[in-house]
Structure formats: C-alpha cells, structure tokens
Lab assay of single mutants.
Amino acid sequence: MEVVDPQQLGMFTEGELMSVGMDTFIHRIDSTEVIYQPRRKRAKLIGKYLMGDLLGEGSYGKVKEVLDSETLCRRAVKILKKKKLRRIPNGEANVKKEIQLLRRLRHKNVIQLVDVLYNEEKQKMYMVMEYCVCGMQEMLDSVPEKRFPVCQAHGYFCQLIDGLEYLHSQGIVHKDIKPGNLLLTTGGTLKISDLGVAEALHPFAADDTCRTSQGSPAFQPPEIANGLDTFSGFKVDIWSAGVTLYNITTGLYPFEGDNIYKLFENIGKGSYAIPGDCGPPLSDLLKGMLEYEPAKRFSIRQIRQHSWFRKKHPPAEAPVPIPPSPDTKDRWRSMTVVPYLEDLHGADEDEDLFDIEDDIIYTQDFTVPGQVPEEEASHNGQRRGLPKAVCMNGTEAAQLSTKSRAEGRAPNPARKACSASSKIRRLSACKQQ
C-alpha cells in the first residue's frame, strides 16, 4: 500500500481520502468484538498479612480480608486513616479506646483483636480482627420478611446475652447493641463488635452510672431520649438488646419516626405494640426488656430465667442462610486472597510482582521504634555504632529488605517449588510478632 504524507491529507475531501486508502487503516468495530484482558491483581503485604478484597466500608474506614502468612488464618483488617478520623467527632479517641478494650477481652461471643499495625509515614492504622463471614443486618436484609425464624432468632439472642453478660462482668457498657454490630462466623457463632462508643466503668465505681451516649437513635432507651444527665449503663444495653430481639423476630421496630426528633419523642413516651403472632412468652420477655422505668427493666439474670429464653424451640421454618457475597455473588464466600496468593505462588519472584506497604510497620504502639547501633568497621576489626531503624520486634528492616532482594536475584530452581506461605513470609520485609 502506498504511504501517504499526513501533511497532504488536509487537502483532500472525505471521498478523496477514502480513495487514497484511509479506509485501510481506520476501522470501526462493535464493542462486543473487544476482548478485555482482566487487570492483574497485584499482591500487597502489610507486615506478614497478605491483603485481599474489600469486605465493607463504614464511617471510620474500610475493612478488607487478609491472610496471615505465618498461621494461614483468615483475618479481617480495619484500615483507618488518621486524616479521616480527625474529621469525625471523637474519632481518634474512640478508636484508641476500642483498641484498649479489645486487647483485654477474651470471649467467644466478643470479636477478638489479633494485631494492631501502624504506618507512621502514611498515617494509617490497621486493626487486624478475627474473620466473620457476614453481619446479622446483612442476613436480615437478604430476606423479604426482614426477620429470622424463632428457632434461629433464639439461638442468636442467647449468644448475644452470653457476650453481653461477659462485657458487663468486665465493667464495660457497649451502648450500641444492634444487628449491624453483631457479626457471624461460618459456624454460626455470634460476635459482638464495634466497641468504639463503649465505656469502661471505673474499677471502684459504686454502680453503672453513665453520662454520655453515642449509640444508634432507634435503639436508645427513654432515659436517653428524654435527655437525662445520668442513667444506668447496663440497663441501656438491656433495652438495646430488647429492641434487637423485637427486630429479628418481627422484622419491625418498636419505635419509629420520620426524623430523629419524632423518633425520640415516640421513644420518650414509651408506647409501642407487640405483634400478636409473637406469642405470650416472647411478648412477656419483650415487655420486661423494654420496660420504661430502668429500675423495673429486666436484668440479665431475669432474662436467663425467663421461660422463652430457657425453652427449646424446634425449627418450624427453614433458617435464613448466609447470603452470597454482594460484589462477586459467591454463595460460598470464598477467600478473596486466592488470586493474590496464586500471583505470588505461580509467578517468578520479581520485585515488580508484589507490593510491600512499607519497609517498617510499627505494631502494638503509636510511637516510632527505637534505634540500635549499626556496626561500623574500624582499624582493629571492631565496629562502632551508628543508628539503624528496627521493627518493634527488633528485626532490622533494611537488612531483611536487602537480603530479600538478593535472594530474589539468585538463580535457584529449587526455590520455585516452595509453598505459597513460605514465599509470602520471604517477601515480607518486616516480620511481626
């Protein structure tokens, strides 16, 4: 084909351009004929944790799935940006308080904090938690009735009371019990989460009196709706648990309003109706937990002794299953770290194939690490110290990083047969305790 000078094309009309061969290198194709290559998922490591896909996002930050490269346990990490926390009232204080509380709590029905990582340079905090497959609110939203069968609701409620009793025994008032803060594992274990607005009572406090509340409006008791200066913290949790039980068994809320002012007005009056299909035992329990006067409201001991709580409820309806993943529609909620794991395991070791967030990740503290002497050669063979940054567990980050890069360049065919977990650990520049 004859090559045409581009400067001469402006002298031709459209018809003349076609005659000189423009149609031979300008093609129009339908979008259905285009085959897009999927974007390669680059592996990203935060300390010893391999990052997966997004699980959810809230006002405080994002939650992603991660894999512990040492234990191969599935975890969830809450990623918090200090810049964003400053824009939220009491944001930083709530996060630090939640970390302090979770560090000393150990119960099967309370979410466990596994690790805390802090990135000084990017001003990011990573709260590594045990993995929960789904939230209770997500399960309720997945069915038209917006409720659980009585047998399933009873099982979840009993676990909620177990976890709540443990928190109260530790002198902690949750203040925000609701389905949105109750998570579930694949085995059906309920976990109380989000202790950001919780309050730890003084060890020598005479009672459970509280003065502040930041919980969700629909789950607040009349004493808070009416603006009382002080109130019983434990009875606030009992009320919120009662509203939660009402919601998961009926699909409704005892109090509603077009806006928060109308909602608080209705809560302050204390008038509500219980659907007739709840039955006398459940209705009596709800009335005891939603008692207007805090002094007359049920205690956890009274809830445990109630006939509806103690009764064994046979399954009359099919239980609400864990819904498919909202993004991938995966009904099994498979591990989202698998594509990243395959990338590390299947590809040659190259620095361009993975990302390490930083050479140094500070753990379990908000301060910069200490310094240790770096050896410097002298005339008599002895070495003197220069400062060298280290990880919180004493690992020399720069030395590990250099060693990792040197190993990656060394030709050794046997290394390709290593397991995925050992490869992740070798790529991680800074081991965590």
Rank of each mutant, 00 (worst) to 15 (best):
E2Q: 08
Q7S: 06
Q7G: 03
M11W: 15
T13I: 06
G21A: 11
T24G: 11
I29E: 11
A43R: 15
I46Y: 09
K48L: 10
L50C: 11
M51Y: 15
L54H: 07
L55W: 02
E57S: 08
S59H: 07
Y60R: 13
E65S: 13
K78F: 01
K82D: 08
L85E: 15
R87Y: 14
I88T: 12
E92A: 10
V95S: 11
L101R: 09
L101P: 01
L102E: 13
V110G: 01
Q112I: 13
V114Y: 14
N119R: 09
N119K: 08
E120R: 04
M129L: 03
M129I: 03
C132P: 00
G135K: 15
Q137W: 09
M139D: 00
L140N: 01
D141P: 00
D141G: 08
R147L: 02
C151H: 05
C151Y: 12
Y156S: 04
Q159H: 00
Q159K: 03
G163H: 00
L164F: 00
L167I: 12
L167V: 07
H174V: 03
H174L: 01
I177V: 06
L184C: 04
L184A: 03
G188C: 01
A198N: 03
E199H: 11
L201I: 12
H202M: 08
F204W: 10
T209L: 06
Q214A: 08
Q214W: 04
P217R: 01
P222E: 01
I224V: 04
I224L: 09
T230V: 12
K235V: 04
V236I: 09
I238N: 08
V243E: 01
T244D: 00
T244W: 01
L245P: 00
T249S: 09
L252Y: 01
F255E: 04
E256F: 05
N266E: 01
N266M: 02
I267R: 06
K269F: 04
G270D: 13
Y272V: 03
A273P: 11
I274H: 02
G279P: 08
P281D: 12
L290P: 01
Y292T: 15
P294H: 05
P294Q: 11
I300L: 09
I303Y: 00
Q305I: 13
Q305W: 05
S307W: 12
F309I: 11
K311G: 10
K311I: 09
H313A: 10
E317W: 15
E317L: 10
A318T: 08
P321V: 11
P321N: 06
P323C: 09
D327R: 15
R331Y: 10
S334Q: 13
M335P: 12
E342Q: 09
A347G: 07
A347T: 10
E349L: 12
D350E: 09
E351D: 05
E351P: 13
D352E: 07
D352V: 07
L353N: 14
L353C: 08
I356F: 08
D359W: 06
I361F: 05
I361Y: 01
Y362M: 15
V368I: 13
G370D: 09
E374Q: 04
A377I: 13
S378T: 11
R383M: 14
P387V: 07
K388Y: 06
N393S: 07
N393L: 08
S404E: 10
S404L: 12
R405L: 14
R405D: 05
G408E: 13
G408L: 14
A410E: 10
N412W: 04
A414Y: 14
A414S: 14
C418A: 15
A420G: 13
L427K: 13
S428V: 14
K431M: 09
